[in-house]
Amino acid sequence: MQWNSLVTQLFGPYHGMRADGDFLRGEVMFEGEPLTVIGTTNHASIGVRLALAQARAVLDTVAQHPGRPILLLIDTQGQQLRRRDELLGINRAMAHLGASIDLARRRGHRVIGLVYDQALSGGFITSGLIADACYALPDAEIRVMRIPAMARVTKLSEEKLAALSQSNPVFAPGVQNYVAMGGVRALWRGDLQACLRDALTHTPTEDRRAQDGAERGGRQLAAAVVQRVLDAA
């Protein structure tokens, strides 16, 4: 879905959100309450510059609007694959973005992620995956890598990976698999305003993803292994 039609559905035609290149930012009203919206579009690749732009918006909200909820709109092809970004410490910039979102949560901001188009690996880990919880639209796409690239890196055949990805959510791209594994809390269908209202009210502040993955059958070991470590003699 285009970001403009998404925010129009959520906040009405006079939402006031702006795109600056691939970066989205706005202070919107949702049912009478102000909300900060931060996001990316055009399948943005997240380099140092875009990570810092997002972190700036998060820190501004924490400093100027204590407690104001934050909605992260996610459309990214992953981290920028450039030597220059590596030299500049892209991992540090992304950690800074993640730590800024984490600080907002600790200071009482509800932080909701929404994958409205595409979410890949590095661009996702310090946005939706570090929010209180992440949601997705049903036609969104979430993955780490396309199957041909996975085949190259893992040295397994494309045919084998494609076949296995039909049955095991652990290596198959797709939002439904991320729901099954607990990485996405739920899909937003139908009335998007009702979905956002519900998310702002009911999203847990603790990390429930491993338990969700176990209960939904998509990630059966994580929660149990964590518990074994806690119980180990």
């Binding site: 993640g98 730590a99 984490d102 600790r106 690996s121 996702f124 880990i125 310090t126 995956l129 570090i130 979430i142 993955r143 780490v144 890598m145 996975m150 890196v153 893992t154 397994l156 959510p169 652990v170 290596f171 198959a172 791209p173 698999n177 991320y178 594994m181 607990g182 990485g183 990390d207 993803r209 491993a210 993955g213 990630r219 994580a222």
Partner: peptide, 26 residues
């Protein structure tokens, strides 16, 4: 980084490590 043989689970796991580590640091 993420073990590509179990990519989706690895990606979520790394983000869980991040959150848990930041809890310890906090």
């Amino acid at each position: 980084g993420v073990r590509l043989h179990e990519a989706n689970a690895g990606l979520i796991a790394v983000s869980e490590v991040m959150r848990a580590l930041l809890d310890v640091r906090a």
